[in-house]
Structure formats: C-alpha cells, structure tokens
C-alpha cells in the first residue's frame, strides 16, 4: 500500500513568487526573511522523499463557474496546465505544466464515491495559484505527478466545516489504501483571516490577528474538536470576508489526524494576511 510520507498545510500567497525573485529596489524588505522561512519549509517536504503529490486547493473562478459549480472535484488527467492570464497579470506567476497521477486520481474517485463523497471530476483542468503557489514554494522543480483536489470555499452555499474535516480524513485513508509502493505527500493550502474586496483589506496585518493566533494553535496541536466547536460557516465571516479558505486548513487537520501535533510550525506576519506553514510526518520524522 502507498505510504503518506508527509502531510503539509500552507497558506498560498500569490505574491511570494514575485517577492522572492525580485532584486534591487523592487525587492520588498520582508523578502529575505520570507524566502528563508520558505526554504526551511521546503526542506520538510524534500526530506520526506515523495513520489506523488496530492494537492488540495480551490479554484478562484478560473475554470469553475457559477453555471456549474462543484463542491469537491478531483482532477484526473495525464497533465495539468497551470496559471491563468489574470494571475500572470496581477501576480506575475509563470505558466507551468504538471504531470498527473491518473491511477491515484481514479482510486480516490472510486473510493471516495463509495465512501459517500459525491466527488466531481475533471479530465481537462487548468489549475490555479492555490495549487501552483505550494509547488513554487515547496517543489519548485515541479517534477512530481499530482492529483489536484479542489474544494469550494468561494461560492456559497459552501459545505460545512465538518465536511472538510471528514473529507480530509477520507483522503488520508484513501491514499493509504492505494495499491502502490509509492510515497505520497498530501499538501493543502488555504487562508488564515483574510479580506478581499472589502473595507478591511490590505491592512498592516491580517484583518483578525486574534483569529490567526487561535487558528495556528488549532492546527499546530491538531485540535480538530476545539476548532469545530468554534468555527461555523457564519463565524468565518467575522475574521474577514475571504476567511472561509480556512476550511482547507481544517481539511488538512483531518488528513493529519485528531491530536496530531505538527512536526514543523512556522508563521510570518505580513501585511494583508499572515503566512502559516505546517508539516506532519505520520510515520515519524525522516532521518
């Protein structure tokens, strides 16, 4: 059976690529510290020696649109082209092509349906920065095949937070029941408190530092019960109008497991939103 070599949860900040590659007067003052934290974070994936990446993210109205909106979708294709014109325009993101791992995608679709997750699928999916940002930060050589899994944290009505946790638990079990000798890293990205297009956007910090502090504690300590007790679809409006992206962190807590402390925890307080990085090694830290 396949082995889960690492579980990784991260914010996906689309400005990282530009900040980390800019030089001279264009390089922001926080870039060096950000790059150093990302390089330490990247090492946690490299050490796990993965063969395949399951990538959990969320389409930002790129390919998925309101005339046909899935709640959870698995990409099953031999390749995934990546990044969109408006992401090149606003963030300077490069175009990419990633290989797909169709056998694992097919397994997750079949097994997921049989576990009562009515997963949608796509055989031609252009992925966006929710998946390419962690490729850029964690595996910039972009050499491993992926299975993209999109969640709807964006276009209400949304699934309940507990459903994200349940899907995370199921993804862990489904990967571990894949008949393969491969090492799989499960990587998911979301947000802490975040406001987009509202009065609290682009402040000195994220819009709700107190929520961010609690969120990091829930994730780092694997406190799924505590998190579910406080977080609801309604409550997530308060920390910022795009904070429902936190539910992808809750999904990753489900992957990691109740009470599982993260083996690597790091944060970076940036303008606009706080960065947060977590890695778990389910079978112990690699040597």
């Amino acid at each position: 059976m396949a082995e889960v070599a690492a579980v990784i949860a991260s914010t996906h900040h689309p400005f990282y690529y530009r900040a980390s590659t800019s030089t001279g007067a264009d390089r922001p003052p926080f870039a060096d510290e950000w790059v150093a934290k990302i390089e330490r974070f990247r090492e946690t994936l490299t050490r796990a020696e993965p063969d395949v990446l399951v990538m959990v993210g969320s389409d930002h109205f790129h390919q998925l649109w309101l005339d046909n909106m899935p709640q959870f979708l698995v990409g099953k294709a031999p390749f995934f082209d990546a990044n969109w014109y408006n992401e090149e325009r606003e963030f300077g993101l490069p175009r990419m092509t990633l290989k797909g791992e169709e056998e694992l995608a097919a397994h997750i679709l079949r097994d997921g349906l049989d576990r009562d997750f009515d997963l949608a699928f796509s055989n031609e999916l252009r992925i966006d920065h929710s998946i390419t940002c962690p490729i850029i930060t964690l595996r910039p050589q972009a050499d491993l095949p992926i299975v993209p899994i999109y969640t709807n944290i964006f276009a209400p009505p949304l699934p309940q937070p507990k459903r994200f946790v349940q899907l995370g638990r199921a993804i862990r079990e489904m990967v571990e029941s894949w008949e393969s000798g491969k090492r799989v890293a499960i990587i998911g990205t979301g947000h802490l408190s975040l406001e987009l297009g509202g009065p609290r956007q682009f402040g000195e910090h994220g819009p709700d530092p107190e929520f961010d502090r609690k969120a990091v504690e829930w994730i780092a300590s694997g406190d799924i019960e505590g998190c579910l007790a406080e977080v609801s679809l309604d409550s997530l409006h308060s920390p910022g109008n795009a904070t429902h992206g936190f539910m992808d962190f809750m999904l990753m807590m489900g992957v990691a497991g109740e009470g599982r402390k993260a083996d690597h925890v790091d944060t970076l307080d940036l303008f606009h939103t706080m960065e947060a990085y977590f890695t778990w090694y389910p079978n112990g830290a690699p040597a």
């Binding site: 209400p156 406001e195 297009g197 609290r200 956007q201 402040g203 409006h237 308060s238």
Partner: peptide
C-alpha cells in the same frame, strides 16, 4: 484606497450567495 472607500460599511456584509 479601494478599501478606504468602503470604510463606512459594517458587518454583516451583504450576502454574496447566488
């Protein structure tokens, strides 16, 4: 400036459900 132009808007924000 885009955010500041909206500073008079308080919670709860308008529903964006479609």
């Amino acid at each position: 400036a885009y955010g500041k132009a909206m500073e008079h808007i308080s919670m709860p924000y308008p529903d964006i459900s479609t």
